[in-house]
Structure formats: C-alpha cells, structure tokens
C-alpha cells in the first residue's frame, strides 16, 4: 500500500475523531482537511514501517490545539447540521439516541485535554502509550486525564452533582 493510500484509509477514523472533538461537522471536516493537506505535503517525512494512524492523529492533534481551532464546540442542544450537498447524514439510532445525546452533551463539559484522552482511548481505542505519543505527554498524564475525564462524564451522565461528590472525597 502506498503512503497516500494509507492516508486515505485513515480518513474515516480521522473524521470520526474530529466530529467527536468539535461536534460541528463542517468544522470537523475542515480540521481533517487541514490534516490531510499537511500530511500529503510532508509525506516524504513519514517513515515507512511506522504507524500512519498515529502520525495523522498527531498532526490532527497539533492542529486542533492551535489557536485556529480553539473555537467553541457547537452550542448545547443544537442539532448536528445535515449537509445535503455532501450527503452527510447523522445517524439517529432510536435505541442509542438517548444515551448518545447525553454523551455528546457531557463531552461539552470536559476541558479539551481530558476530551482528547477520553476520545483517543475510549472511541479510537488507542493504547495509553500511543495516546501519550500523539499528545506528546507522559503516560502518567494520559492516565490521570483519563481518570478525571471519565469520572466527570460519569457524574454528568448519571445526574450526580460532581461538586457534592468532590466534597465527600
């Protein structure tokens, strides 16, 4: 498989991650597009035999933390837009809709650094080691951010008040 083919093969995952990160499908695809353009322009820097997925996620991450993408996630409760032109539709699964809506709303409440880890590990199924490489932080940092992010999500999704619980601890 050529390097370019390897990039193309990762696009669905990059789009999924960007969508979860930014919520707004247009902003998400802008991020992926910037990532792809950067990657293709630096394809010669990609070392054969290393992990294309990690490389692309690293680029995406670095772009995301750049000021350009530091815009706020789509406001609470705003439906995901339907992009008719590009045929982008948003899955509305009856059985999972309720929980899924909750998780999306709950993600809004996380600081970026926790959201990155929760999504890379929980959605993209990256190992702690790969996640640490992508984010450029030690593995211990990944684990503590993951723990904090997941606990926060748990309280949010289960309707507990995190401030009360924090006081109890």
């Amino acid at each position: 498989m050529s390097k370019r083919q390897a990039v193309v093969a990762e696009l669905p995952r990059l789009r999924r991650y960007a969508r979860a990160l930014l919520k707004d499908p247009v902003a998400a695809d802008d991020l992926v597009q910037d990532c792809v353009e950067r990657a293709l322009s630096r394809l010669s820097l990609f070392k054969a035999g290393t992990n294309m997925r990690s490389w692309l996620f690293t680029i995406t991450h670095n772009l995301h933390v750049n000021a350009v993408y530091r815009r706020r996630r789509a406001p609470d409760g705003q439906p995901l837009t339907l992009d008719v032109e590009n045929g982008v539709t948003v899955q509305a699964d009856q059985t999972t809709g309720l929980v899924a809506r909750d998780i999306s709303r709950a993600l809004d409440q996380l600081p970026d650094e926790q959201r990155h880890v929760v999504l890379l590990v929980g959605l993209e199924e990256m190992s702690y080691k790969k996640t640490a490489e992508i984010l450029g932080v030690p593995m211990g940092t990944v684990m503590s951010r993951l723990a904090r992010g997941r606990e926060r999500l748990r309280h949010l999704m289960e309707g507990d008040d995190p401030t009360v619980l924090r006081r109890v601890k």
Binding site: P12, A20, N86, Q91, D93, D102, L123, R150
Partner: peptide, 19 residues
C-alpha cells in the same frame, strides 16, 4: 457504557461518504 455510547454516537461517521 461511556465507551459504548461514544461508539453508538460517532461510529456512523465511518460509513459516511467523504465530502
């Protein structure tokens, strides 16, 4: 459940046509 919810909510993107 969080992991399952993430997949339930975002995996649909994997099957979308590329813009």
């Amino acid at each position: 459940r969080q992991k399952a919810a993430l997949h339930a909510h975002f995996d649909g993107v994997l099957d979308e046509p590329l813009p």
